[in-house]
Amino acid sequence: MTLSFRRRAVNAVMLTLTGVCTFLVAGVLLVILGYLAWNGATSLSLDFFTKLPVPVGETGGGMANAILGSAKVLLLAMLIGVPIGFFAGVYLAEFGDSAYSGVIRYATDLLNGVPSIVIGIFAYALVVQPMKHFSTLAGGVALGIMMIPISLRTTEEFLRAVPVSLREGAMALGASRSRTIFTVVIPAAKNGILSGLMLNLARVAGETAPLLFTALGNPFWSSGWLQPTATLPSMIYNYAIAPYDDWHRQAWAAGFVLLVLVLTVNVAARFAIGRGSARGRS
């Protein structure tokens, strides 16, 4: 009787604790969102989207240059990372049954696990060192390299999910292998691949570490692709660690804008793919 009581008590206590753990984590999420939304929304104004940063001491100003800078860096990253990842994903899903594809998979996993700051060092060595100055291009290369593994993985996963009967149908009609792939299989997997791309973009949009010594930063508009540029995440970092209250407000506004963007894309993409199958991240 006493043993049974002890076992029942342990049962109840431990099961309750697991529930507490769950709601602790969910609570942290709510606190983060709530605190950020409160501070961000109260700091946000139209100026944030339209004006340049102002020097220390003046109030007001915005981060228009950083928003554009982030967009430019992300565009470059997409142009670099997505084609490589996409075609390599097609290779692994459609032609990849050799030992060589095992090697590619291993390299992709390796690349995916490399800390983003190390990717930054790599982009510095690839672009900044030979060109002798920091640039939007270098930031794009850094984020582009980070996009490759996820781009590959989502492409491969969604191509493999296309039913074999579709391929067989196309082949039976006399289509060649490559024609089957590009006119039947890829269109069938299009939604999944596009959602994966959005998740991938959202992931690198918040990356700061690889931009610190590639895109660097810039208090003004950055013209062209070969000048340093401000980006939203690096502005959050610089403004948050500065000792000025007005800068802190700007950092909250920037954080809020960034988080809203990232979470909206995540929610939308995950719903588009269907919950549970969205394995965009490692």
């Binding site: 075609f87 290779y91 490559s178």
Partner: peptide, 28 residues
């Protein structure tokens, strides 16, 4: 030939990843 082109093209993209990874380790 169409298949060979697709195979080569996608294979090149895959090899790029290998090259990037090796280059990364080499630079470090």
């Amino acid at each position: 030939s169409g298949d060979a082109v697709a195979h080569t093209l996608t294979g090149m993209a895959a090899s790029t990843i290998l090259a990037v990874t090796i280059l990364l380790a080499y630079h470090l």
